[in-house]
Amino acid sequence: MRAVITVIGKDTVGILAKVSGICAEYNANVIEVTQSVLQDVFAMIMLVDISKLNTGFTALSDRMSELGKELGLSIHTMHEDIFNSMHRI
C-alpha cells in the first residue's frame, strides 16, 4: 500500500526535512520524491510505502495536515488508489 503526499506553498528552508521526519516517525518508507521550486513556489510530490505504519493511516494524514497549517503550506496525504482509479482503466 502506498500513499502520495503533496506539498505546495511558499518555499522555506527545511520543508522536505520536516515532511520526511514525520514519515520516519510513523514508519512510512519514502520511495520517491519529485520536487521543484518555481518563482518561490515550492511543489513536492512524495510517494511513501504505508504498509508498515506504526499507527493508522488517518493519524499520519492528520499529522501532515497539522504540519501544513504550522508552515502555511498546503499538504495533502492521499492513498494512491484514488489516483489509480481516476486515471487508469
Binding site: 502520495v4 503533496t6 520517491e32 519529485t34 510530490i45 510517494l47 495533502h76 492521499m78 494512491e80 484514488i82 489516483f83 489509480n84 481516476m86 486515471h87
Partner: peptide, 12 residues
Amino acid sequence: MLNVYDILETIR
C-alpha cells in the same frame, strides 16, 4: 508509476 500531471489534476 503515478504521473505527476495526473496527481496534480486530481488535487486541483
